[in-house]
Amino acid sequence: LEELEQFAKTFKQRRIKLGFTQGDVGLAMGKLYGNDFSQTTISRFEALNLSFKNMCKLKPLLEKWLNDAE
């Protein structure tokens, strides 16, 4: 859980630094990986307001997006 919290915090900082909005991330993930995510979902991930199971599902996809974006 602590690792997920740290990743969510780091993800948000890096996303902002790269100049992407939460909506941008959701759209890009849909185009790149075929998984559409709403701005709300990205927001809830960053705020740790998703279930643990959903957080765990999203984390590898967001890590991949972040690596591709950088």
Rank of each mutant, 00 (worst) to 15 (best):
residue 67 N to D: 14
residue 23 G to P: 05
residue 56 C to L: 11
residue 50 L to G: 07
residue 59 K to L: 08
residue 66 L to R: 01
residue 35 N to I: 15
residue 31 K to N: 03
residue 69 A to F: 08
residue 2 E to V: 07
residue 48 L to A: 08
residue 27 L to V: 13
residue 7 F to I: 03
residue 33 Y to H: 15
residue 40 T to W: 08
residue 35 N to H: 15
residue 2 E to K: 15
residue 63 E to M: 10
residue 55 M to D: 02
residue 65 W to N: 00
residue 37 F to L: 13
residue 39 Q to G: 13
residue 63 E to C: 02
residue 15 R to S: 00
residue 60 P to H: 06
residue 56 C to W: 12
residue 34 G to M: 06
residue 11 F to D: 00
residue 13 Q to P: 04
residue 40 T to N: 13
residue 14 R to C: 03
residue 57 K to W: 09
residue 51 S to R: 08
residue 9 K to N: 08
residue 42 I to E: 00
residue 21 T to N: 10
residue 8 A to L: 03
residue 14 R to L: 06
residue 62 L to G: 01
residue 54 N to W: 09
residue 56 C to T: 14
residue 15 R to L: 01
residue 41 T to R: 06
residue 37 F to G: 03
residue 63 E to F: 04
residue 10 T to M: 08
residue 28 A to Y: 09
residue 60 P to Y: 03
residue 29 M to R: 00
residue 5 E to P: 01
residue 21 T to M: 02
residue 27 L to A: 15
residue 39 Q to N: 08
residue 44 R to W: 03
residue 7 F to W: 15
residue 24 D to P: 01
residue 34 G to N: 09
residue 69 A to Y: 09
residue 62 L to Y: 07
residue 20 F to K: 07
residue 43 S to P: 10
residue 47 A to D: 15
residue 39 Q to V: 10
residue 58 L to S: 04
residue 69 A to M: 13
residue 28 A to L: 09
residue 62 L to P: 01
residue 37 F to W: 13
residue 20 F to N: 04
residue 10 T to L: 12
residue 56 C to V: 12
residue 18 L to P: 00
residue 60 P to C: 08
residue 61 L to M: 08
residue 55 M to F: 05
residue 56 C to K: 04
residue 64 K to E: 11
residue 2 E to M: 12
residue 1 L to K: 13
residue 17 K to C: 09
residue 58 L to K: 03
residue 46 E to I: 01
residue 58 L to R: 03
residue 44 R to P: 00
residue 2 E to A: 10
residue 62 L to A: 04
residue 53 K to H: 11
residue 42 I to T: 02
residue 31 K to P: 05
residue 59 K to P: 01
residue 45 F to E: 00
residue 14 R to Y: 02
residue 57 K to I: 08
residue 18 L to A: 09
residue 34 G to F: 03
residue 53 K to N: 15
residue 5 E to R: 10
residue 55 M to R: 02
residue 9 K to R: 14
residue 27 L to C: 15
residue 15 R to H: 01
residue 60 P to K: 07
residue 22 Q to A: 11
residue 57 K to N: 08
residue 63 E to K: 05
residue 58 L to E: 02
residue 16 I to Y: 05
residue 66 L to Q: 03
residue 6 Q to H: 13
residue 45 F to Q: 00
residue 40 T to M: 08
residue 17 K to T: 10
residue 10 T to D: 07
residue 63 E to Q: 07
residue 57 K to P: 02
residue 60 P to E: 13
residue 29 M to I: 12
residue 32 L to E: 12
residue 56 C to E: 13
residue 55 M to A: 11
residue 66 L to M: 14
residue 43 S to L: 07
residue 8 A to G: 03
residue 45 F to V: 02
residue 38 S to C: 15
residue 51 S to C: 06
residue 11 F to V: 03
residue 18 L to T: 02
residue 38 S to P: 09
residue 45 F to K: 00
residue 46 E to S: 00
residue 21 T to F: 01
residue 36 D to F: 04
residue 43 S to Y: 08
residue 62 L to I: 06
residue 4 L to F: 02
residue 23 G to A: 14
residue 8 A to V: 14
residue 49 N to Y: 07
residue 47 A to E: 15
residue 33 Y to V: 04
residue 28 A to M: 09
residue 41 T to S: 13
residue 12 K to Y: 04
residue 52 F to Q: 08
residue 28 A to I: 08
residue 25 V to I: 06
residue 34 G to Q: 09
residue 62 L to K: 00
residue 65 W to C: 02
residue 41 T to G: 03
residue 24 D to M: 05
residue 3 E to T: 04
residue 52 F to V: 14
